[in-house]
Nucleic acid binder design. Sequence first.
DNA 1: CTAGTTTATTTCACTGGTGAATTATCAATC
DNA 2: GATTGATAATTCACCAGTGAAATAAACTAG
Lengths: 174, 174
Amino acid sequence: MATLANCIVMMDEGIDRVGELVPQMPAAEARMCRLMLMLGATIDRELEAKLKPNKLNHSEFLTLMILYSRPDGSSTPGELCEFTTQGATNMTRIANALVKRALITRGSSKDDRRRVLIRITPAGRRFVQKVLPPMFPQVGAMFTGFSAGDMRQFDRLLRKLAGNLDQLGEQRLP
Amino acid sequence: MATLANCIVMMDEGIDRVGELVPQMPAAEARMCRLMLMLGATIDRELEAKLKPNKLNHSEFLTLMILYSRPDGSSTPGELCEFTTQGATNMTRIANALVKRALITRGSSKDDRRRVLIRITPAGRRFVQKVLPPMFPQVGAMFTGFSAGDMRQFDRLLRKLAGNLDQLGEQRLP
DNA sequence: CTAGTTTATTTCACTGGTGAATTATCAATC
DNA sequence: GATTGATAATTCACCAGTGAAATAAACTAG
């Protein structure tokens, strides 16, 4: 099996070596960047594995969770696209899949009949309440050994990084 | 456009709300987890966008960089699978693509003829040296405002998280 | 009322990645 | 030295997700 630790060792050596060949490279930043990519992908795989027994994939899960988290349990395809960073094409497919399983309903909005109103059903709520708790242990285990201070720091640093990424994105689409 | 900051605001509210409905949830950990997923995906998209003009995708780039970082510039498909966390099937495709562009060569190993030896070509090295520097500004910009201490902390926390993820993976495949 | 814009859906072609079976080689054992 | 089993890479058929373009319906502003 390819342990994350192995990959990291190898990545560290790789960056050192590339840093010798291309000295202008911001090595420390590149390292962080790769770490974020590796960990993000790993967590993604972990989550996907947890969801598979329930015949859900990541974007379907996310969509369902957003609806579940809304006080009125409803949203629109456009809004869901925005927050799940999915294309409209895919959101239609996701909605189709969730409607077929009766976890959500699709209806047209009263005041703007172009809009489609997507709403989580009682069965959808029950489904979330069944699916969610079994993933708590893993989520907790990811942060064993993190002190309260560690969590605060981590949160701060991730949000700071998010801010930088936003700026970086803006200047690419001017 | 869907700014990361917006998604985060929405995620925070969502987790608060779900936390009320399902109180056993480890809210702080779930928040970190989602942050990692969002940032990882964003960095991934950013990288992919930077690579697209060069007709490379993430896994091809990674493969090429590993080869570039090796003192002898060579590896085998199996090893590359391990470090890129790709299936063997996909590695064959990646190698095909890179061979077609003459960035790598494929030859069979002398001492074990099952093994294929993949080696970066001089053109491959030149290609990396051309492609790499233009991404340095972005990589640097991702961490503007990070003090030396911030970088140290961030590195420490990410590696700690990696350790936990490894343990979590082990106990799923016993 | 008309022209233009927004919202959602559908279709199509394409990319990236996966699982199952296949082929070739090696290593071990009888 | 033939047989069995493991390992490395490839091939094939398939799926999920994407981007672009076309369509349709409904809203908005002049």
